[in-house]
């Protein structure tokens, strides 16, 4: 074997490829992480409060306590992700030093910079970032993100925003594939993204990285719908541990994500799940509590 290279774009994007078809679950304790792994999660997102509680408590939401992240890393053998605030490159440095496998530069936490996202090329640890549309996804890729998730509206248990963002990204990609050269130059300006990246997507018909869905997924059918809309996998935040029977719901969402095109399987796993999280209508959310609008 010759020289080895760590932190390459290929191994960063490659880990996300290995998560495809899977469910990544928000957990706040090692016990919840154990439940998630036993249910078949492909990774866990370690954080101090799930988005529904961040909404309830208000205040500034930050990176989790390193002790808490260490506890979860020690508990499970699957990859562990953790959130840093938008633009907070020191939180990201800390998370990298703790050995987390992916950093989520997340709008669910309170942004630390209102103009700049983290320069993700400076890190060996890969980053996942949220996007509400194609332009936002491409800007994050330009900054070095190795995985994209549609934002949805975290902590609401309402899938409508996730649907909107998945349809926006997939629809805009479809539009690019029908454009001629001249139109692609204009499209790059419109999306505020580099021309080369826009041209590549017009050619391949997909993002050059894995695209997951997040924000508001609460049921097996929600997860399967996102997969049918073109997601490579799903993040479930408050939807599992804010429900009546987390073990069973977590398993059910895992199976529905694998068998996303088999309604009989989705029906089977949806039976007797108990109460889903209550949920919030997006119309009733004040503007300053809409997390999806954070990020630029």
């Amino acid at each position: 074997m010759s020289e080895t290279r760590t932190g390459t774009t290929r191994v960063k994007r490659g880990l996300a490829d290995m998560l495809k078809g899977g469910v990544i679950m928000d957990v706040v304790t090692p016990e919840q992480a154990r439940i998630a792994e036993d249910a078949g999660a492909v990774a866990v997102m370690a954080l101090e409060r799930v988005p529904a509680d961040i909404r309830r408590d208000g205040g500034v939401a930050r990176m989790s306590d390193p002790d808490m992240i260490d506890g979860i890393v020690a508990e499970v053998s699957i990859p562990v992700m953790a959130k840093a605030r938008i633009g907070h490159f020191v939180e990201a440095q800390v998370l990298q030093s703790l050995g987390v496998d992916y950093v989520d530069e997340s709008e669910v936490l309170t942004p630390a910079d209102e103009a700049h996202h983290i320069d993700k090329w400076q890190f060996d640890v890969p980053f996942v970032c949220g996007a509400t549309n194609l332009g936002e996804a491409l800007r994050r890729l330009t900054e070095g993100a190795a995985m994209i998730r549609s934002k949805g509206e975290a902590g609401t248990g309402n899938v409508v925003e996730a649907t909107r963002h998945m349809r926006a990204i997939a629809g805009e990609i479809r539009k690019l594939t029908t454009m001629d050269e001249t139109e692609l130059f204009a499209a790059a300006k419109e999306h505020r993204a580099p021309y080369d990246l826009v041209a590549e997507i017009a050619e391949t018909g997909r993002l050059p990285v894995v695209l997951f869905t997040a924000g508001g997924i609460a049921t097996p059918a929600d997860a399967a719908m996102m997969m049918q809309l073109g997601a490579d996998g799903v993040f479930v935040g408050s939807g599992i541990f804010k429900s009546g029977n987390p073990e069973q719901r977590a398993r059910a969402i895992v199976e529905a994500t694998t068998h996303f095109d088999d309604p009989a399987v989705i029906a089977k796993v949806s039976r007797g799940l108990g109460e889903a999280m209550v949920g919030i209508n997006i119309d009733t959310l004040p503007e300053d509590q809409r997390y999806a609008s954070r990020g630029w």
Partner: peptide, 17 residues
């Protein structure tokens, strides 16, 4: 042995005969 080479920051590219 799973994850034998370490965590993600230890993932690597190389060439191998």
């Amino acid at each position: 042995r799973r994850n034998a080479f370490g965590r993600q920051v230890d993932s690597f590219d190389t060439s191998l005969a």
